[in-house]
Design a binder for these strands. Structure first.
Length: 598
RNA sequence: GGGCGCGUGGCCCAGCCUGGAUAGGGCACCGGGUUCCUAACCCGGCGGUCGAGGGUUCAAAUCCCUCCGCGCCCGCCA
């Protein structure tokens, strides 16, 4: 029987919650009736919410059968037979060792549409206040324009941040700017000389780019050649070492910070094209000036396990944290007393861990050992709170191999975006006569950048990928534009309906076709998908869901008429409105522009 | 050499954490669909036993072991 539990407090944002509760009630009763006394939690953990070929929810009874010494198929049919009819569950049947439940579309549609109507932009997520989270991503050194290999980091991090925010967390995104190392110093080194005094190798190789060039392109230009030049010019290396030291001691030339800021601004402009922006920037040098590095050094030096090396350098042996033997002894303070990258990174993370309950770093696989080292340090320092690392593999150059600026295998992100936008522009012009020029620009930019962002997002971070120009620029099938297109299609129907309120007077019992039933089911799935993404950081599933939803909406679109339908018109419009809202929410989560027309 | 990650139809991927019913998509290819809400779409077809081998289990793409291939890391660099 239906238990109309009086649940105080807000209703669950997940339409499945009340239905599952009812299903579990019934299941407990049916199981007991057949002599199986399983706890509700056990039954819940056994349920397969993806359903199966026979229904919406499946229960494999093997384990229950084993513990009650029954034959699985017999138990399955016994449970199905003992099932007491319940309003949310349309049918229960046994098939082999499985009990299959078909959920009432009317019930599911009611729960789902009422939530979409009530929550609107917030459908799919949860209400706060959740924990405070700091998500650090991208953090590329300000040495020149971003290439495609680096942007995977930003797309993963930005999407994770959007999802966390939707799930009620109070999120701050951070970019850690490395202004202390040799890399940034090389740029200062070369630009502090008048151009006519540059070594000829560098000057000829890095000719001034044409005027409209942004600062990241312009000031980053000589960087790879400086790097090459230093290899066989020891006197320049000595020069640079002095500069690095001066910067670390806080009296580097003002030009240093200026250049870093200019180049960074250029990089950020590129990221903004794919809707990646940051709440805060933490400059590595600030950790030296605000004393946090000193504090870390004091704490580490006070550890009984701290080792002093021959020349006075200090290290920790972290072998007991499972670090490989060859890299378990980690120096954290140089012989001259200065700090190292790890030390500053420890300081940075301690700071983040004090400010937030959840600290997430998005790191390339070359930082895997570094992440483990940090974790070991925190163990040694007795820190209980630890960061979460999302590790991703590089996007390799076309034939394989890392993207290299000097080798010419790097694909600049701006170049890729420009190409995508050009292609999108052709498509728009082909399909839409008489469109305003400004409108073409706007749509082409949204479609092109959306395609690129989706293309990178859809692949699991840990998967190595080789960059493929053709695939990155695809606008069909599993792509960003496909999702945008579906959103626009839905919007177009709503517009033509001339209505403004879609969730009044609809009747879910009219959703009788397969495509309507299927659409209701995908819509209902979003809250569960987002909980999974938050838990596992599998951001690719946002793209996967977006495609499933778009796919199902298009099937519905072709299968049943909306505006020209009779009695079903109002109800179908409600479904279209729900799909439109949900597609839009998912586009937001992916950082892809919503387009009302395309 | 050691550590970590990846290996699913011709190509690109999801599923692996928390093992369950004939392994899901997309691209490409073949055949259809537009007097009708946007054909960046839809319908149908072809095609894989999940790198190889062993193990655990009633049940393995999923867990464990060995091997092979590819990538990354193993600095008083960042």
């Amino acid at each position: 029987m239906a238990k109309s539990e009086s649940r105080p407090g807000p209703v669950s944002p997940d339409p499945w919650t009340p239905i599952l509760a009812e299903l579990l009630d019934g299941l407990g009763t049916a199981a007991r009736a057949t002599g199986v006394d399983a706890e509700r939690g056990v039954l819940e953990s056994l349920l397969d919410l993806e359903g199966g070929p026979q229904g919406d929810v499946a229960l494999p009874v093997h384990r229950l059968a084993a513990s009650s010494r029954r034959a699985a198929p017999t138990l399955a049919s016994d449970i199905a037979r003992a099932w007491v009819p319940s309003p949310s569950i349309e049918s229960v049947s046994a098939d082999g060792a499985f009990v299959n439940f078909r959920v009432s579309t009317v019930r599911l549609a009611t729960e789902t549409l009422s939530r979409i109507a009530a929550r609107g932009e917030r459908y799919g997520g949860q209400d706060g206040p959740g924990p405070k989270a700091i998500i650090e991503h991208t953090s590329a050194n300000p040495t020149g324009p971003l290439h495609v290999g680096r942007v995977r980091n930003g797309i993963i991090g930005d999407t994770a941040a959007r999802v966390a925010r939707a799930m009620g967390e109070s999120v701050t995104t951070q970019y850690y700017v490395d202004d202390l190392g040799r890399q940034a110093a090389m740029i200062t080194w070369i630009w502090s000389k008048p151009r006519d005094q540059w070594p000829t190798e560098i000057a000829t190789a890095s000719a001034e780019p044409p005027p409209p060039a942004r600062d990241d392109v312009r000031y980053g230009r000589p960087y790879p050649f400086v790097s090459a030049y230093l290899k066989d010019h020891p006197e320049a290396r000595a020069d640079l070492a002095q500069l690095v030291q001066a910067i670390e001691e806080g009296h580097g030339p003002p030009l240093h910070r200026e250049l870093a800021e200019k180049i960074l601004a250029g990089m950020l402009a590129t990221l903004a094209r794919i809707n990646i922006r940051f709440d805060t920037f933490v400059w590595e040098s600030s950790l030296l000036t605000d004393g946090s590095v000193d504090e870390v050094l004091r704490r580490l030096n006070g550890l009984p396990s701290s080792i002093t090396e021959a020349n006075g350098a200090r290290a920790l042996d972290l072998a007991r944290y499972g670090l490989p033997k060859e890299s378990s002894r980690v120096v954290y303070q140089r012989g001259d007393g200065t700090s190292l990258y790890v030390t500053r990174d420890i300081a940075y993370h301690l700071k983040k861990m004090r400010a937030a309950e959840r600290v997430v770093d998005v790191l390339g696989q070359d930082h895997r050992l570094h992440a483990r080292t940090l974790d070991a340090f925190f163990g040694e320092l007795g820190e209980e709170h630890r960061p979460t690392f999302i590790i991703y593999q590089d996007i390799l150059a076309h034939g394989g191999g890392r993207m290299s600026t000097r080798g010419g295998s790097a694909v600049w992100l701006d170049e890729l975006l420009d190409d995508a936008v050009r292609r999108a522009r052709r498509e728009v012009l082909d399909r839409w006569e008489g469109i305003e020029p400004a409108e073409v620009d706007r749509i082409a930019e949204a479609v092109g950048t959306g395609a690129v962002r989706f293309h990178i997002l859809r692949i699991a971070p840990e998967k190595p990928v080789a960059f493929d120009w053709e695939q990155a620029l695809s606008f069909e099938g599993r792509s960003g534009p496909f999702v945008q297109y579906s959103y626009a299609r839905a919007g177009s129907i709503l517009r033509k309906s001339q209505m403004s309120e879609f969730y009044e007077g609809y009747d879910p019992s009219l959703y009788t076709s397969d495509s309507e039933k299927a659409l209701v089911r995908v819509l209902a799935r979003l809250p569960r998908v987002l909980r999974g993404v938050l838990r596992t950081s599998h951001v690719q599933n946002v793209a996967g869901y977006a495609h499933d939803l778009a796919d199902e909406f298009n099937r519905f679109y072709h299968a049943v008429p909306v505006l020209s339908s009779g009695a079903e018109r109002t109800s179908r419009l409600a479904l279209v409105a729900a799909a439109h809202q949900t597609l839009g929410n998912v586009l937001d989560l992916m950082g892809i522009e919503r387009l009302e027309r395309m």
